[in-house]
Design a protein around this nucleic acid. Structure first.
Length: 468
RNA sequence: GGCGGCGUGGCCAAGCGGUCAAAGGCGGGGGUCUGCAAAAUCCCUAUUCGUGGGUUCGAAUCCCACCGCCGCCUCCA
């Protein structure tokens, strides 16, 4: 068995063994959102998937340095800020804060660095200047700087496009002074009223693509291991990043490129500009963290997913079932002990690795977790404590934390006095049952069920849970 | 038009040449447990993988054609 992780590399269009540039270390850069609104489910996919992938890399023994950026200056931010009559930077900073809130609630760990474009203006300017000096970029009369695509022979390799095919569709916006329609802006001269920074070419602001090149270089070096993001970024964003970085540094920019598929809403890509979005915050409220993570991780990261509330609901039921079992087991202990790893456990661990080593096949890994839940339930039914503990350990403490599933505490409604009231009713009902007054006992159960409190009788007494 | 991807049970979704008469989740049917339920558990729920050809001893998995869907080529995760 090969013990290397294999991932699909967009650059070479096949699965490759992951061999980091620096042994034992993986440096990865994930493209984050442009912050001018709350994040939607589509934004949640790369965040969830690549966070889980990073956890898996760590699980497999790598030291990982992960960077995820925020684009905090661009046209959409400026427009939105103008609409609202607030400062663009305030707007961006606000939605960065909101991003962290949603990401945290989704169980996404922060990256090691979360750079924002406006903190790297100096690096960006240096990089643009470097490209001008090397002859890959040119400055126009009005102070724009463009990257000259035809100067970079490898242009199009990542996205699989030929320069000549692109020309037909390329557009030149009015007022642009490009030598070639394909050329893209590294630096844009400031329009009145826009935020701007001084540069050798006058007041202006960075183009979209240069920020990622500058920030990844600053934090990870000119050459690093993995660059990731949504597949809609392959062209032009990643193609351009790669071109400008490699033109300047003369070395391979990112060795592996990973791209996640889109989430679709009624057959179309979910996207802010199309307006067909479902906010993470709302989804969290209705379905909960684990349902959303299950929804995302139950499908291979490179395939598109159709979003629907029904599917979220199915995943919510599945997540709740798992929680029921875990909590039932936990209720037997003050502190759940750690089992001795035996061959059965080690085999499950090997399976788990084998599955995820193959291009991060999370759907199969999720299936393995569900198999273990079944083992846990069966063992509990058979009073096989040892076996139950082993299954529990793997689900809750080993595999769950890698996938970010069932690892945080369960989200449920806060119960204050209600809890005590429910327990009073349950106690009284138990007495009625002892006296075989089942009519009244059933009425209590039914009426509690009507308000979402589910009672379960067993030989050890009655337990209850609140349906969320 | 160019480039890329997808089509598996009622729904979601793995599998990508034999161990597949196809994993896992949701749903449905039946049994066990229970005072009755709920939960759990056991069994059943695709002789078949968009359609038609082909390659092969052997295909859901490879090739060709066709049908349908989607992404990128413009901001987007």
């Amino acid at each position: 068995m090969n013990d290397l992780i294999r991932i699909y590399n967009t650059l070479t269009k096949r699965k490759e063994e992951l061999i980091p540039l620096k042994e034992g270390w993986v440096r990865m850069y994930v493209c984050g959102p442009t912050v001018y609104g709350l994040i939607h489910i589509g934004n949640a996919r790369p965040a969830t998937v690549f966070d889980a992938f990073r956890r898996y890399l760590e699980y497999r023994g790598y030291k990982v340095i992960m960077v995820q950026n925020f684009t905090d200056i661009d046209d959409k931010i400026i427009n939105k800020a103008n609409e609202m009559g607030v400062d663009p930077q305030k707007l961006a900073d606000t939605f960065i804060a909101e991003y962290f809130r949603d990401a945290h609630d989704l169980g996404i760990r922060p990256a090691n660095f979360h750079p924002k474009t406006t903190d790297y203006i100096k690096e960006i300017i240096d990089m643009v200047q470097g490209l001008v000096d090397k002859g890959y970029a040119y400055v126009t009369k009005s102070g724009d700087v463009y990257f000259e695509v035809r100067k970079f022979e490898k242009y199009g390799k990542l996205s699989g496009k030929k320069i000549d095919d692109l020309v037909a569709g390329a557009r030149v916006e009015p007022g642009e002074e490009k030598k070639d329609p394909l050329d893209f802006a590294l630096w844009k001269s400031a329009k009145p009223g826009e935020p701007s920074w001084s540069s050798p070419w006058g007041e202006g602001r960075p183009g979209w693509h240069i920020e990622c090149s500058a920030m990844s270089t600053a934090l990870l070096g000119g050459s690093f291991d993995i660059h990731a993001g949504g597949e809609d970024l392959i062209f032009p964003h990643h193609e351009n990043e790669k071109a400008q970085s490699e033109a300047l540094h003369g070395e391979c920019f990112a060795k592996y490129w990973m791209h996640n598929g889109m989430i679709r809403m009624t057959g179309e890509k979910m996207s802010k500009s199309l307006g067909n979005i479902f906010l993470v915050r709302n989804a969290l409220k209705v379905f909960g963290r684990d349902a959303i993570r299950l929804f995302i991780l139950s499908k291979h990261y490179r395939s598109p997913i159709d979003f629907s509330e029904n599917i979220l609901m199915d995943n919510k039921k599945a997540a709740e079932r798992v929680w029921e079992s875990l909590e039932k087991f936990e209720s037997r202990y003050e502190e759940v002990p750690i089992p001795k790893y035996d061959s059965w456990m080690n085999e499950r661990v090997e399976e788990f690795k084998e599955i995820l080593d193959d291009d991060f096949n999370t759907p199969e890994a999720v299936a393995l977790v569900f198999d273990l839940v079944k083992e846990l339930n069966k063992a509990m039914d058979n009073s096989d404590e040892e076996k139950a503990l082993k299954a529990y350990q793997l689900i809750k403490r080993e595999f769950g934390p890698v996938l970010g599933l069932f690892d945080l505490s369960r989200e449920r409604k806060e119960l204050g006095k209600e809890k005590e009231l429910i327990e009073i009713l349950v106690d009284i009902r138990s007495k009625l049952r002892e006296e075989k007054k089942f009519d009244l006992a059933d009425e209590i159960r039914n009426r509690l069920s009507g308000v979402g409190v589910i009672l379960k009788d067993s030989k050890d007494g009655t337990s209850w849970s609140v349906k969320s």
